[in-house]
């Protein structure tokens, strides 16, 4: 078993560290700071933390006003509330005027678990990815979360970063290393974790771990399956996706999100226009979901290593 760690806690810790060096950082939350972990920042910098209460429209608007006066707002709540209740405000008050606001949401996808469908947001990536000027990031684990949050401070413009609720398996070593090699997080990039020959799995968020396990299992069947951590959905690392398509001929996408419009959607759009390639999308299939533990839900809705393995076998059966 690989060790697991909370991406939310990594976010909360990193925010405090950044707050020490960046007086322009302000943090806003909508009555969920103990869940999103922004309470850590609130304790350290109470004068730079604003809890707007259960009011996500106002949350986005207040952040817009702060950003327009030179502050760097990090805005946190659950994904379902940020992107469904605060969408109009994110669009008009933040993205359209290109303001430097970082929306970091937690409780993305089915990883929410027991709270059930009212709290799932299985279309946030589709919605946010379609907004102009908006960068969309989905880290794979706690280590990458820290790197991604740091990179947001250097980035200018609206950004959306999505974290799960669950503690999920670690992909990277301390300080962002993989198999001993030190990596550098670049918005708009991706990380090739396994080189493949027979197929490639493009995964994002907690599904990267599932993809690595699928690749390992398939090796026993004699298949060399590549794995790419697509940590930035927008701008998508098109070159790496197209190279994987050319090199391995078959692609699978894997995400804790609807198969519509997220990573699977982005890759399908790219391939259809630039390099038609057999593709299978692993994700939630046009459903709202139900209550259950997140592992049970991943099983029930087809988001495990086993489902990725099956998708690889199926895609390889498709004509090229």
């Amino acid at each position: 078993m690989r060790p697991s760690a909370s991406m939310r806690e990594a976010y909360g810790r990193t925010l405090v560290e950044l707050g020490e060096r960046h007086p322009e950082i302000v943090v806003l939350d909508a009555d969920l700071s103990t869940s999103t972990q922004t309470f850590l920042f609130a304790k350290r910098f109470p004068e730079r933390f604003f809890n707007v209460g259960v009011a996500e429209a106002n949350l986005m608007g207040v952040a817009a006003g702060l950003a327009s006066c030179g502050k760097l707002p990090f805005v946190s709540t659950f994904s379902v509330f940020a992107t469904e209740k605060g969408l109009s405000q994110f669009k008009q008050s933040i993205a359209y005027p290109n303001l430097n606001v970082k929306v970091v949401v937690t409780h993305g996808g089915l990883s929410v678990g027991e709270d059930g469908a009212s709290h799932f947001c299985l279309w946030d990536l589709a919605v946010m990815r379609s907004l102009p000027r908006t960068t969309v990031i989905v880290p794979a684990d706690a280590v990458e979360t820290e790197q991604a949050v740091r990179s947001l401070v250097r980035h200018r413009g609206p950004a959306f970063l999505r974290l799960p609720r669950a503690k999920t398996g670690l992909v990277y070593g301390e300080g962002y290393t993989y198999r001993g090699e030190r990596l550098e997080f670049r918005i708009g990039g991706s990380v090739v974790l396994e080189e493949g020959e027979d197929a490639t799995v493009l995964a994002t968020g907690p599904m990267v771990v599932e993809a690595l396990e699928a690749s390992e299992a398939l090796r026993k069947e004699g298949l060399r399956v590549g794995v790419v951590d697509v940590h930035t959905l927008k701008p998508l690392d098109e070159r790496t996706v197209l190279e994987a398509a050319s090199r391995t001929g078959f692609l699978v996408t894997a995400e804790d999100h609807s198969i519509f419009g997220g990573l699977g959607g982005a890759v399908a759009e790219l391939l259809a226009e630039r390099r038609p390639t057999p593709l299978k999308r692993v994700g939630v299939k046009d459903e709202f979901g139900k209550s259950g533990s997140w592992r049970e839900l991943y099983e029930a809705y087809g988001l495990t290593s086993r489902h990725i393995q099956q998708a690889v076998r199926e895609v390889r059966g498709m004509a090229r």
Binding site: V26, G61, V62, G65, S68, C69, G70, S93, P97
Partner: peptide
């Protein structure tokens, strides 16, 4: 023009943010 508006209801929140920034600074 200080804020992008048109979809109604959003200006006062933006104003709150600007007022907070003024106080912080």
């Amino acid at each position: 023009v200080e804020a992008s508006t048109g979809s109604l209801g959003q200006g006062l929140s933006i104003g709150c943010g600007m007022a907070l920034a003024g106080r912080l600074d």
